[in-house]
Design a protein around this nucleic acid. Sequence first.
DNA 1: ACACTGTTTGACCGCATGGTCTAATCGTAG
DNA 2: CTACGATTAGACCATGCGGTCAAACAGTGT
Lengths: 212, 212
Amino acid sequence: MRSNSVQTGSNPTFTESARRTQIMQCAIEVLAESGYSGASLAEIARRAGISKSVVLYYFSGKDDLLSSVVFDVYGRAGQAIAEALSHETSPGEKIAAYVRTNLHFLEEHSAEIRAVVEIVSNARGADGTHSFVPQGEDPVLAHLEKLLREGQRSGDFRNFDAHYLAIIIRSAIDTASGRLVVDPSFDLAAYTRELLSVVELATGTHRTEDSS
Amino acid sequence: MRSNSVQTGSNPTFTESARRTQIMQCAIEVLAESGYSGASLAEIARRAGISKSVVLYYFSGKDDLLSSVVFDVYGRAGQAIAEALSHETSPGEKIAAYVRTNLHFLEEHSAEIRAVVEIVSNARGADGTHSFVPQGEDPVLAHLEKLLREGQRSGDFRNFDAHYLAIIIRSAIDTASGRLVVDPSFDLAAYTRELLSVVELATGTHRTEDSS
DNA sequence: ACACTGTTTGACCGCATGGTCTAATCGTAG
DNA sequence: CTACGATTAGACCATGCGGTCAAACAGTGT
């Protein structure tokens, strides 16, 4: 009889999927407002107006809940970005769309992103190592890096180190979620404008010949 | 008789200052390796080979220990940066020295910086708000912003939004500590080179006239 | 020998955590 | 009505946390 805890059966009940999304949503709110250490099962349950046991009925444990949140948000963000990039053709436009879409998603889903950041940067396994920070290749970074390299191969971009420029651009994107939550005067539109112009200058879009 | 807990008397004993720095050093190591939630008083004491009570004898509580670490590292970093900037004159050189010194300090004190980041981004008061993230004006950001504005006033820099460019540059600096600890192939020298060239392009150093 | 201060220990406390378990509830099919 | 699976609440547990406390130890001046 392993029919006790639900663990994502093939045909989820209406109650099941509703509860799962509700619990995940509450977890996101608590994580965004109170941080990782404030996001206890009891607090999440209290927020949802349910008993702590219900959370553990639909998720096999806290790890399961948190990784579900990460994968859910992560997936939706990736989808939005992929969709936006498919409309662009030139490397310069692709990079610009990448930055714009990332920050736009952030604007509409700041709590989700904040929650994911909180989880990714704090969740650790029993051995003490990060649970979500990729060990070797970071696919997110690799994707951006690929876009940069394509622009270099086509001659649209100047000769920079694609790997490290990708890290710089990602850091500028990732820092925005923290600003949004802590600084009410933070103007995401202005930030997007500034970052876009920095990226354009850094990639050297429209430049083909070497001046020196 | 308030002579019980030490609380930084005017003339600290040899043992006292030695113990305080030892405990702070161990706290830094634990924070850098095991993260904020792994840095319990018991673990820090175990690492130092002393009893948990000793930690609480020299520090009035965990908050006191952590803020001591923050102020200590913060102060030494600020001093190193101020010293380096005093040697430069032109805005472009100052910004470059700022970036270079920040990343250089990071290279030699990666555990300290990692520990401070861990504390600053996780420590929260009883009300749930961050304890160390400045509410209104961030002095670190304001300093960099001032350097950028000076370059604009002197005509060395182009017309960017100093506030948001400062945030972008800081984010590129702050992200490096995380990379250093998680990615062994991260080449700080190459990263510094790339960031310096990005900053140079973004500020538009050596540019005086508007082309359009 | 004594007292005094600085230092250290280990037992202990109250509390919050993630998680388990049992029993009750609800809706529906027979 | 009954039976059954899905769902929920609440009592409970072991563990680890930050912090307190009384007692012991070490050195030093008298």
